[in-house]
Simulated scan of single mutants.
Amino acid sequence: MEEPLEAVDSTNEPHDHPLKGIGYMLAGVAILVALEMCAKSAANAGVGVLQVSWVRYVGHLVLFAAIFGPKLKLGLVKTQYPVKQISRGVLLLLMTLASFLSLQYLQMIQVTVIGFLIPLVVAALSVPMLKERVGPHRWGAIIIGFIGVMLVVRPTSLDTHWSMLVLMGGIFFYGFYMIYTKQLASKGESSIRSVFYTALIGGVILTLPMPFVWEMPQNIEVWGYLAAAGILGGIGHFLVIKAHEFAPASLLAPFIYTQVIWSVLMGYLQFGDLPDHWTILGGAIVISSGIYLMVREARKQKK
């Protein structure tokens, strides 16, 4: 699951074009869901998770180097926080592997809804790691959101697949990744550099096993899925960065939930999948909890 929740604010320009920012955000979200569709399609064709993930990371790395390298040069990789950047890269890689693995067995909408647990996990982790105070309203939203995810996972049901638990484990890794991202952003670290480092670390680590696990795709269609996965990840994150140049994060955050629309649409058109009533109900609860947290945070910032 490619979650566009980076704490990005890539320039010092004023956020004076909100509609343009929303447009970039909507496009970025749709493209990142299309990446998941390509990853699932490649996996269904027999391509291994490590191979799909490697193509995704290397494509992202090459695209960002081509776009930002000529302008930023060494500034793209020169950081005062190498340990934290490497840690972020490893954490996101673990999340990516969990997400792509779960896509082999679950519907896209199931992966999307379970992924909406992320802002709730981040809110919970912010207490011990960022020393933030979480009041009863936020704790209530976190608990209710978790109940919504449990309706999708249904751990006592025979329909529960082990990959759901793997995905939830990956989400907790992603929660720590987001905490580190917030810490770096508060210290003035460039968001573009942080996004580049996630691609660099994942690409380097995944390159090591490639000589042993690479399998040649069987036809041009599979090659197309892999090529698209490599390109779409970089484009999607680039559009999310552009969105934050034109509009504040508090305005853009609710549009992340348009993933639901794209996941249902692409899942149905590509795989013939439709969500069951438990997924719909759980998704509605999780989304409501997430939006409630966003509204509370926005009001807090205004005060």
Rank of each mutant, 00 (worst) to 15 (best):
A253V: 10
K20P: 03
C38V: 06
V166H: 02
A247W: 04
P209K: 08
T96F: 08
G188P: 06
R133W: 12
G28M: 10
K84V: 15
D16W: 08
S53M: 08
K20G: 11
G290T: 03
V29Q: 01
G175Q: 05
N44E: 13
I179E: 04
Y268V: 11
P82L: 02
R296G: 01
V122E: 10
L97P: 04
Y81N: 14
G230K: 02
L208D: 07
G203F: 04
K40V: 09
I114L: 13
L232P: 01
L269V: 15
M164K: 08
G75A: 04
F238T: 15
V152G: 02
L91Y: 03
V62I: 15
V134Q: 11
L63G: 07
E13H: 06
V222T: 13
L151A: 09
K84H: 12
Y105C: 07
Y257V: 04
S263V: 04
K84W: 14
P248Q: 12
L93E: 02
I256K: 11
P275G: 01
I291L: 15
L32K: 00
T96M: 13
I241P: 06
W139K: 09
K187V: 12
Y24P: 01
G230M: 03
I285W: 03
T207A: 14
M266A: 11
D276L: 01
L226W: 00
R56V: 10
V77T: 12
I142Y: 08
K131T: 10
H60I: 05
E36L: 11
S87C: 12
I280H: 07
K40S: 07
L239Q: 03
I118V: 12
G145S: 06
L19S: 12
L269R: 10
S41M: 11
L265G: 05
L50I: 05
W162R: 13
T160E: 05
A243I: 11
A123Q: 13
L232M: 07
G236M: 01
V49R: 00
R56C: 10
Y24W: 13
L293S: 09
V47G: 08
L117N: 11
P155S: 11
W278V: 00
L101H: 14
H60D: 01
L72S: 09
F176H: 11
L184C: 05
Q110Y: 05
A247D: 09
P248M: 10
L76F: 00
A253K: 10
V127M: 07
G282A: 06
A66K: 13
L117G: 14
I179P: 01
E221F: 09
K40F: 07
K131Y: 09
L251H: 02
V121A: 10
V195K: 00
K242W: 10
F100T: 04
V121R: 09
L281T: 14
Q80I: 06
F212L: 15
V222Q: 01
L120G: 01
L274H: 06
N44G: 11
Y268Q: 10
S157C: 02
A253Y: 12
I261D: 03
E297H: 09
W139R: 08
G175M: 03
Y197M: 09
A7C: 02
G59K: 01
I291A: 04
L130W: 04
S289R: 06
C38H: 08
V295H: 11
M25T: 13
